[in-house]
Design a protein around this nucleic acid. Structure first.
Lengths: 192, 192
DNA sequence: TGATAAACTTACCTTCAAGTAAGTAGGAAA
DNA sequence: TTTCCTACTTACTTGAAGGTAAGTTTATCA
């Protein structure tokens, strides 16, 4: 074909979206191949089996998030815009047809996963926690935020809230998410 | 057979566990029938199709939760034991092999669901929010808790946190849950 | 010009999922 | 004792899922 590796990218793109819409068991090769106008075997060519695909998706997710978080971090010092960056990123993902996060998509089928995939996902989550902990610590130092308990525990709590809220939003509409963001701000002692 | 309706109960029991372990698409009729020593058709006899089964599971879940919440409520006035009841109930569910909650199990496959099922789940979630809002309001009145923002918003936030934490616990171990409970206590101004 | 490799397609296979139709065993009621 | 009902089983069907092997097209390089 014209641009050889384009198909590979398109497969990842489509699969990524499907994964975050329906979870690991919620989509098939056909759901990817049909809209792209290729055959299932084309997917197998690029990713011999489904686990290879999933691994690529996790990697993709890692990169997407790395890029996004580096953008918030480019704001520089203050913690607040970074937190808002996380909120905006979350909303953006959902509006782009990715209602659940990768961890959520994998969690339901967690026992089926290979160790490599588990490790990759684990690492991604640890990175997220690490990043948010740092933001919270910065916020505390700069007196932008107030909270009790450790920064890491608080970070996990916020990420858990967002993850849960994403699921609930699916059922109860997007308003819940904005409300959750607001509640998180309130709990961090942020006055608008 | 000896006790006729026993099979039906066993099917619900097993399916309930599988549902909360693997989600809607994560188990098959065989996963239910094999361990019970019956045939797939026996399941179809009691539940003509899978949606009927799911509806029964949601109903079951509703009853389990109704019973459990009524137990916390039997404590009487104070809000704190009721909140702790929720935490204990959550831990208990997980220890009984139900790592994700019903809403989580359904969320991934939400688009596949029939309207009846969506409504039933919706109703269940609204009940939970209503109950926890009431607990929080009571806690505020009795000066057991302090928090800002509306009680309902705070209730949704707590439920979202627990839901997200359940998923994260799968990956990162049970400790996260206890930490989340502690963080929720801290955020409610509870000093042990 | 022929060989080679990449990026596929065609045409399969196997397994498993959900579902159905017809049959059967055992008990209760007439 | 026949008849009927409940609670299944047996024996299928259909469809889809993941996967594979062999062939085909296109570009590239010697």
């Amino acid at each position: 074909m014209v641009t050889a590796s384009n198909t590979r990218e398109q497969i990842i793109d489509k699969a990524f979206q499907l994964m975050l819409q329906r979870g690991l068991n919620g989509f098939s090769y056909r759901d990817i191949s049909a809209p792209l106008g290729v055959k299932n075997a084309a997917i197998h060519y690029h990713f011999p089996n489904k686990m290879d695909l999933i691994a690529a998706l996790i990697d993709e997710n890692h990169q997407v998030l790395k890029k996004a978080t580096s953008e918030f971090m480019a704001y520089g010092g203050p913690a607040r815009p970074q937190l808002e960056g996380l909120f905006a990123f979350t909303m953006n993902q959902i509006q782009r047809g990715r209602p659940i996060c990768m961890a959520g998509a994998l969690a339901v089928d967690y026992d089926d996963l290979s160790n490599d995939i588990k490790d990759a996902n684990d690492c991604f989550m640890k990175d997220s926690i690490k990043w948010l902990s740092k933001v919270l610590e910065t916020g505390l130092e700069r007196e932008e935020f107030t909270f009790e308990g450790g920064a890491e525990m608080k970070a996990v709590s916020i990420l858990a809230t967002i993850q849960g809220a994403r699921q609930m939003a699916r059922v109860h509409g997007m308003d819940i998410l904005e409300n959750m963001f607001e509640q998180i701000r309130i709990d961090l002692g942020i006055k608008d």
